[in-house]
Amino acid sequence: MSQQWLLNCGNNLVYLAVILLFATNLACVSSSSQIDVDADLKHMLSRCQKRDEDFNECMRQVFNDLRAYFTTGVPDYNIKPFDPHRCTFVELRRGDSQGLGSFRLILRNVSEFGWARSEVTKFYADPEDHRIVYAQYFPEKSLEGEYEFAAKMLGSEMNRKGHWNLTLYDYSQTTSVRRIGDPGSLIKVHVEVDRIGGMELHIENLLQGQPLNQLADGVINSMWQLGLPFIKPMINELVSSAFTDIFNESFRHFPLEKFLST
């Protein structure tokens, strides 16, 4: 097996690995029971005075206090749980099926864990632009599910499916949330990946045969950083689109002014 073959294979596997990594940021979960949510939210949010100089820091602390709801959601306000995320179907397509290169990735029955341990490290509110920006840190995030992958490159076809699992370490991102208009109007989200400190990924049946599949795991986990800079713009676009859907579903009609003090 030549060194060049390993390099080419490694690059392809890195691209698939990173795409697989970020295509799973969707929330498809069921709601659970809650206590007196209105009183609790009022207690947390009303302590942040919008005219105070420390409003941004106060809201950063509130965001972290809200982690108690990540595992339950807030059913009365149609906010779904964030930990774990559970999604039955995610699809990603790129390229023209009749062209020189294209791929289709489907993820099924995806579960994502780690949001309850995340921390909002920075928060900024821009009332005039109806926008908030916050940075979030995850010491560890894990995902698992089933995948189907089909690709066509220069006339050659690749079809794979199986189980996959992934763990991220020392991961952070910055999220910008902007409301386009008055309360109840659409929400636009942009997510920028800031850092991935470490990654462990296993993709079943990516290569034919157990020895080659173990080799693929080793190549992916040792070379993923090389492919990240080239596909980061696509990652940011993909995650931003997914989170725009999530925020509109869960937060578009949330009556924030009901709980904030003036």
Rank of each mutant, 00 (worst) to 15 (best):
S2V: 02
Q4H: 08
C9Q: 11
N12F: 12
V14I: 10
Y15K: 11
Y15R: 09
Y15Q: 08
Y15W: 07
A17L: 02
L20F: 06
F22Q: 00
C28W: 09
S31A: 14
S31M: 05
Q34V: 10
D38W: 07
D38L: 06
A39E: 07
M44L: 13
L45Q: 09
S46D: 03
C48L: 04
R51L: 11
D52Q: 11
D54C: 07
E57Y: 01
V62N: 03
D65A: 13
Y69H: 03
T71Q: 09
P75M: 10
Y77H: 00
I79L: 03
K80Y: 01
P81F: 00
F82Q: 12
R86L: 14
T88F: 15
L92S: 11
R94L: 02
Q98K: 03
L105W: 02
N109L: 03
E112D: 08
W115Y: 08
A116F: 07
F123S: 03
Y124V: 15
D126N: 11
P127W: 12
E128F: 13
D129L: 13
D129N: 15
H130Q: 14
R131N: 02
V133Q: 04
V133L: 08
F149A: 00
A150Q: 14
L154M: 10
M158P: 00
M158Q: 13
N159H: 15
N165C: 03
N165S: 04
Y169V: 06
Y169N: 09
D170Y: 11
Y171W: 12
S176C: 07
V177Y: 01
I180F: 02
G181H: 06
D182M: 12
K188C: 05
H190C: 12
V191G: 08
D194T: 09
R195E: 12
G197D: 07
G197P: 04
G198S: 09
L201Q: 06
I203A: 11
N205M: 02
L206R: 10
L206G: 11
L207G: 02
Q210G: 14
M223Y: 08
F230D: 13
K232E: 12
P233T: 00
P233Q: 04
S240N: 03
S240L: 07
S241L: 05
S241F: 04
S241P: 04
A242M: 10
T244R: 09
H253R: 11
F254E: 00
P255Q: 08
F259T: 07
T262C: 10
